[in-house]
């Protein structure tokens, strides 16, 4: 089909604009990476846009890797991500399976009870006091129990379970399987894609959680990486940057950049491979919303 001049002009501008979107989205990370490996003295006096590194060193990364705080922060975050996500998945799957069954009496009422919490809640202070009263302050469970189920993710998973053919469940029942067996042996194995999505969503939430530890953790040895990051990036705490950071102002800046890269790289590396699933999950949510 022949295109008018106007249409071709629009297409050209569109490609140009979207290319700009790519640049604007990616450039800050490129800037930070190039700065992190730049020579500290050059970085200090540089007025460049850092399209490539100015000089080269990896000392900042060595510094970051040898920082005991970053190490313990990383280990704590790993703990919250692994156990938190596992607990999230178990609870969300139980809720999603039971409430996906249309023959369950009271399902409508329970769905109302649950979805209402998406739009109204007790808020920060009553929740904080509740967690305190349960004795969960300075307890790793404070980052796991109060966030056991995300109602939005639960709806995505339930919607997905509802699309499983009823005959599959019926025939399992005729064979004498109870609902736990059906859930773990039949429903979950055929729902690997949605489980992958849920795992990733929950894991990213735990990885990035800042408010939870800010409210509920006071002991330094429980701090996840995000709190350590705040101390390094925003409080300019030399102590948090690790031994050797105070030898010069410049290396401190390199350490900040290197820390950003180190704390963001895991998800950046994994993401392109799992993007398909991420988007799939968001779409399932989108259609049902």
């Amino acid at each position: 089909m022949k295109q008018s001049f106007g249409e071709r002009l629009f297409d050209g501008m569109n490609y140009l604009f979207l290319s700009l979107v790519i640049v604007v989205s990616a450039y800050p990370m490129l800037y930070i990476f190039n700065s992190s490996v730049s020579d500290p003295n050059e970085l200090l006096h540089s007025r460049s846009f850092m399209f490539w590194p100015e000089g080269f060193q990896l000392d900042a990364y060595k510094q970051v890797f040898h920082n005991p705080k970053i190490y313990s922060g990383y280990m704590n975050t790993l703990f919250y991500v692994v156990f938190g996500t596992a607990f999230n998945l178990l609870m969300t799957a139980l809720a999603a399976y039971a409430l996906s069954r249309s023959d369950l009496y009271g399902r409508r009422f329970m769905m109302k009870l649950i979805t209402f919490t998406m739009f109204f809640g007790g808020g920060m202070i009553p929740t904080f006091l509740l967690v305190q009263n349960l004795g969960l302050v300075n307890n790793r469970l404070a980052l796991i129990l109060p966030a056991a189920i995300s109602t939005f993710y639960f709806i995505i998973m339930k919607t997905n379970f509802e699309s499983i053919p009823g005959e599959m469940l019926e025939s399992a029942k005729l064979d004498g399987a109870n609902d736990f067996i059906i859930l773990f042996r039949i429903v979950l194995p055929v729902s690997k894609a949605i489980l992958a999505v849920m795992t990733l969503y929950y894991a990213v939430d735990h990885w990035n959680d800042y408010m939870g530890p800010l409210l509920y953790l006071r002991h330094q040895d429980l701090y996840p990486i995000q709190i350590i990051l705040r101390d390094i990036l925003l409080s300019n705490s030399m102590e948090a940057m690790g031994p050797g950071a105070d030898t010069g102002f410049a290396i401190g800046e390199n350490i900040k950049y290197a820390t950003i890269i180190i704390s963001t790289i895991p998800i950046m590396l994994v993401y392109p491979f799992i993007q398909k699933y991420f988007v799939q999950g968001a779409l399932i949510g989108a259609v049902k919303q």
Partner: peptide, 14 residues
């Protein structure tokens, strides 16, 4: 353009 979504709020402000 989806990538920035996964950066934590602490890192964004940093």
């Amino acid at each position: 353009s989806y990538l920035p979504h996964f950066i934590s709020v602490v890192v964004i402000v940093g």
